[in-house]
């Protein structure tokens, strides 16, 4: 009946067997392909990790380089900051110095203005005393004028020192004040502690009109609050002394000329009568 209906069962079995064989080959191929792909995936993963490692390393190196660069910049900025800070301190110091100098110059201006504002001899001497107290900070000092005929220095004014305790000083004597006047050079002792010895002042500034010395200012003690005279004080003291000398000289000339004028006027009056 089966044969009648067509196909041979043996043939049919072979066909099925072939189909199974083909299926088996196909399955094996699939398995192989699967294995190959898995292998490839593993490979790619490894490559990826290796690439990531390489790139990460590069980035790290780059970052380290950048950090070093920034560190250098930071150090440079800190150095610059320190320099600027130093400059600032220097400027501040200079400002204080200039301000101090400015004040001293203002003092000198006022002193010279006061000295030249009168031709009255006593007033000039009074002004010199005021200046030495208020501007220089002298507590015990004397103003001496030269008597050219006698070649002696005479006390004309002072503070804390009287005329009685101040003997005339001969310029021929071996004396600090005489030497100072003869040389025309100011003397400022290094140790500015008060001196009780009339012959040893701590400061002696000659009063000069051009090169002609007409007297001196001698200081024995500074005010308690004035610790010492600075270099600037020395300069100003010298400048002030120059103005004082001119003022004394002018006042003397003026009083002499007035006296002479009065005498001449007296003669004229006598002649006219």
């Amino acid at each position: 009946m089966d044969r009648e209906h067509g196909e041979d069962p043996k043939k049919k079995a072979e066909v099925i067997l072939q189909i199974f064989k083909k299926g088996e080959v196909f399955a094996q191929e699939l398995l192989k392909e699967n294995e190959r792909l898995r292998y490839q995936i593993i490979k790619l993963k490894e490559e990826k990790e290796s690439l990531l490692r390489e790139r990460g390393g590069e980035q790290l190196v780059e970052l380290q380089r950048r950090i070093e660069e920034l560190e250098r910049e930071k150090q440079q900025l800190l150095k610059r900051y320190e320099e600027v800070e130093k400059e600032n301190i220097n400027f501040a110091k200079k400002y204080v110095e200039i301000e101090e100098e400015n004040n001293k110059l203002a003092n000198l201006y006022i002193a010279s203005y006061q000295l030249h504002s009168t031709l009255d001899f006593d007033e000039v001497i009074r002004t010199i005393v005021e200046i030495v107290i208020n501007l220089i900070g002298g507590e015990r000092f004397a103003v001496l004028l030269l008597d050219e005929k006698a070649n002696r220095l005479q006390f004309v004014a002072g503070e804390g020192v009287s005329k009685e305790e101040f003997p005339d000083i001969s310029l021929d004597d071996e004396h600090l004040i005489a030497q100072c006047v003869l040389s025309g050079e100011s003397y400022f002792s290094e140790n500015q502690e008060a001196s009780d010895d009339i012959n040893k002042p701590i400061v002696c500034v000659p009063l000069k009109v051009k090169e002609k010395v007409i007297g001196a200012i001698v200081v024995y003690k500074l005010l308690e609050q004035k610790e010492k005279l600075t270099e600037l004080d020395h300069e100003l003291f010298n400048l002030m002394a120059a103005h004082a000398a001119t003022a004394i000289f002018s006042a003397k000339l003026y009083s002499d000329s007035r006296r002479k004028l009065t005498t001449i006027q007296g003669f004229i009056d006598l002649l006219v009568k």
Partner: peptide, 8 residues
């Protein structure tokens, strides 16, 4: 009393 001081 000091004119110099007043000016200062």
């Amino acid at each position: 009393d000091s004119p110099t001081m007043r000016q200062l």
